[in-house]
Design a protein around this nucleic acid. Structure first.
Lengths: 152, 152
DNA sequence: TTTTATTTAATGATATATCATAGATTTGCT
DNA sequence: AGCAAATCTATGATATATCATTAAATAAAA
């Protein structure tokens, strides 16, 4: 049974959460995806980050972040201008609409999380976090080990 | 900190696992994605299932399954013929190559899982499964409640 | 100061996710 | 039988994921 496979449970759970959380945002009438919201939030908190650094934080690919940013700009939630000091870089700034949208969506996100964690003791959540962290570390270690086998 | 948010941890962990697991399949020289492998496995076990039922089992969308199947056929891992008894349906059958690939990849998948769960007690894994199941149920319940508010 | 290496963003190609809908077929109801 | 509802696959549109590569600019090295 697929449910016995822990990675299937992980995948299933995160997908169900996303579906539920996105539906609540949609229902409230906001035109933004969870991923866009996440990237916009990070930029709002740290506007000086480059795409690769944003990608690191949200655990996405640089290319994915680039395309999400493109959409955020198209939606006029984010404003970009070329940096004067380093012309490879781009200076990002949330628009007024961007800030307002973040604020408006924040309580929905909080509520979603609370509902999802309903009936779970704080200890169980801590334990979940720890276990996930262990799995993450195991995978990352093995992945890096295989990809960079010899250090010179 | 994003790491405090349990759904970020979930997302991050599953992504790291996928990356690591896929890299091992690639490195072994097999031309198949984890998702394709999953769908192929389910079809191998239950060839009578329709796209929607397969989608249910692997927790994907029917449309996603349709496109994954399309690729499996293109790769000659799967064979399809129109059903004689119900011409909406399609009879699926793994090709010899499909079966061989599944067998060849199986030990890699097992090893990936074992590595990912390294140092975790069985009790911790059970607990993880339970907690994920609770979150899943919470989200599904809330989602259904909102989408089908009145039962007639 | 040229050359080389690195950084940054953009983009092509392909795979998957999601929602919606179309088209064909079958089933259920009357 | 005849129509409506349900079923099944295919596909369009858009968003995201992933890998690879390019182009431009800067930093580091020779």
């Amino acid at each position: 049974m697929l449910n016995d496979i822990i990675f299937y449970s992980l995948d299933k759970t995160i997908k169900q959460y996303r579906q539920f959380a996105q539906a609540n945002i949609d229902r409230a009438g906001f035109d933004i995806t969870i991923d866009q919201w996440l990237v916009l939030t990070v930029i709002g908190e740290s506007p000086e980050l480059g795409q690769a650094e944003i990608a690191d934080r949200v655990f996405k690919d640089q290319a994915s972040v680039a395309r999400i940013i493109e959409l955020l700009v198209k939606k006029k939630l984010l404003h970009q201008t070329a940096s004067q000091t380093d012309r490879r870089r781009i200076v990002r700034k949330l628009t007024k609409e961007g800030k307002q949208l973040l604020e408006a969506v924040a309580p929905i996100i909080s509520r979603n999380r609370a509902i999802a964690l309903n009936e779970l003791e704080p200890a169980a959540i801590d334990q979940l976090r720890d276990t996930l962290e262990t799995i993450f570390t195991n995978c990352r270690f093995a992945h890096k080990l295989a990809n960079e086998p010899v250090s010179d």
